[in-house]
Amino acid sequence: MNIVVCIKQVPDTETQIKIGGDGKSIDTSDIKWVMNPYDEFGVEEALRIKEAQGSGEVIVVGAGPKRVVEALRTALAMGADRAVHIEDEDLYGADPMFVAKILAKAVEPLNPDIIFFGQRAVDDDCGLVSSAVADYLDLPQLSVCIKVEVGDGKVTVHRPIEGQTNVLSASLPVVITTQKGLNEPRYASLPGIMKAKKKPLETKTLADLGLEREDKLEVVSLSPPPERPAGKTIEGETPEELAANLAKALHEEAKVI
């Protein structure tokens, strides 16, 4: 079985995001870059499926600047077999729909049975890429999954939605997106990190894929989040007093209860 995992490199979730000089992109000078946390679940699940089947290949694919190689190497160190990097220095911040076009082109020749994506990238918070790739490659999609079971030529997943969990099946090949709860991603071991250095990593350009940059979603400006009004400390000598004063403030002042 061939399993592809698409990996986005994103700012570490601790990062303070600063707006760049152009007012419409972020200042990337001081950022620690990591693999999108949801993509780690995809790598882990792919490795588990391969291990359970006793055969197959796990290929990780990432598009973006040169630094994206680090995220791909992390996945190789976790145990993925090889990587494909679509290198483009200006790609960070691109329309996810264009990124989907790139990934569809890059993934198709790999003949995957399953393509894993994160349910969303924690930077653009879009969650567009996976279902767009599914459409470009004419594959069914199973999104936001907390359980994946691979059977004979088919896959069954658990997808929690508002107030219920849907158990869904589709035949392979299929696109699956991951949600926290699916698994506990392993850490890269030291031998894993050593081995990763020798694993194949292929580099392609947009031209190799016959694509030219096009953005149909444009950020015109970025701004800091709206300021929250200064808070109040609830006063009171006893817990009962605190409780009463809080209830009063929420009822009479904030009018939310």
């Binding site: 879009c126 969650g127 567009l128 279902s131 767009a132 939605i161």
Partner: peptide
């Protein structure tokens, strides 16, 4: 931008060759 809306957006946009302002 419910779970359904998030699931649909990319696929629909791909068919129409447009993008989406999500969430």
């Amino acid at each position: 931008a419910s779970l359904q809306g998030k699931d649909l957006a990319g696929r629909l946009a791909a068919k129409l060759d447009v993008s989406v302002a999500v969430d």
